[in-house]
Write a protein that binds this DNA or RNA. Structure first.
Lengths: 220, 220
DNA sequence: TGTACATCAGTGAACGCGCGTTCACTGATGTAC
DNA sequence: TGTACATCAGTGAACGCGCGTTCACTGATGTAC
């Protein structure tokens, strides 16, 4: 009862009475049947954190719980362990990444070469603007220490989409799958190297991508 | 005295008497003026560990000390902190990497295109065979949590060497620096993607590299 | 040739911290009767 | 319309662990006299 009163006063003042530690305020508990809301909030917080830093030092189960404003144990209500949470984040990242690339291709019209070109630019743009996200998606087992095996095929749609568009370009005189791997490799390498060596005097990005795409795809 | 006796017995039997915990046996202390020997041993152990795993879970100052068979505090006799040790390892890795690439170019003869080709194959081969080393060299600040800034230009020789060889190829009709970046990017991406997605149906490596080099370097 | 002493090459206990995970619990809320 | 009760949505203390770093120390060995 005393606690209720304190809480009301706290709410009236716009803050809870005894929280002064700088972390997110204790979040209100969900309504009955609405329990999955916390799952979303955890996923949101984890995505935000992994997207920002690429997971290095600050990411941990406890850190996610702090960010959400919830007890560390509450994570276990929705994810079996940390690896499962990270896998969920990766899956979400890849879905978003795929949508961004598809939207870029869509905006480029019907001509398959232009679509591939747009896709390539979007790939690098996304990677450069979201290095944490990119790192989380691709650094995989090596960097995340996440031993979830199912990551193996995450991101295959990215490849499939570009392979199909390349196959639609006539007179290439080469295996579209090979060319798709070339392009994927080149775009991925561009992002990886540039984020790893930000101070190197790289050529202007758009020009490099255009030149790479042209060289990889032109007929002999 | 009793300890000396025990040690002698231990040596005679081929193991030290009271060490049974599975870690490396306590190493003998260096002779007077020979103190830098420990520095080398620490560097060796750290290189071995980072080269094997790419640093993820198992690497730590204390783990290095255990591997060497020395008290954790002894590391501080030779390195100011963990970051400095990691930087020393990276520097060593890049020196070795550069030598491997140079040797490959050397073995390919005088023809610059063949040298570039050999360099490219060696780049990918080294990366695929030493994923931990590769990751340590390039994942940099993002994955290692090492905030040493001087890493920025580590590996520039790798670029410089290939740029010069490309410049020596006549009738390219393009900026050699741009082409060198293309190749570096492509080889780097090949290693990065293949180690990140080992189960993807990649084309045969040598063939892909040859095709990539040809496409990137051929005149219009 | 002997010996006091400075130096070198380390050691070991302790610190405070954050981590993943377990366990038993709490208290609000919807529902069956 | 009232109320007992099951369920839901969490909490909080505790565990054992390994970490980076500090501090005061130890004991062998070379060297100056």
């Amino acid at each position: 009862m005393l606690r209720d009163l304190e809480a009301q006063i706290g709410d009236a003042v716009g803050q809870s009475a005894d929280v002064e530690d700088g972390s997110a305020a204790r979040r209100p508990r969900a309504r009955r049947g609405d329990g999955d809301r916390l799952r979303d909030e955890i996923l949101d917080a984890a995505s935000r954190m992994l997207g920002a830093t690429g997971a290095v030092g600050e990411f941990s189960l406890r850190a996610v719980a702090r960010e959400v404003g919830v007890a560390a144990t509450s994570i276990y209500l929705h994810f079996r362990n940390l690896d499962e949470l990270v896998l969920a984040v990766k899956t979400r990242f890849f879905a978003e990444f795929g949508e961004v690339l598809d939207a870029a291709a869509q905006a480029a019209g019907e001509e398959p070469l232009q679509r591939v070109r747009a896709r390539s630019h979007a790939y690098v743009k996304y990677g450069m603007e979201n290095p944490g996200t990119f790192h989380t998606m691709f650094a995989g087992e090596m960097a995340t220490a996440s031993r979830v095996p199912s990551v193996t095929y995450l991101g295959v749609e990215v490849f499939e989409a570009v392979r199909e568009e390349i196959a639609a370009i006539t007179e290439l005189g080469a295996d579209p799958a090979m060319l798709a791997v070339h392009l994927w490799t080149a775009m991925h390498g561009t992002v990886a190297l540039r984020t790893a060596r930000p101070n190197f005097p790289w050529p202007e990005t758009a020009q490099e991508i255009d030149d790479l795409v042209t060289r990889v795809l032109r007929a002999p």
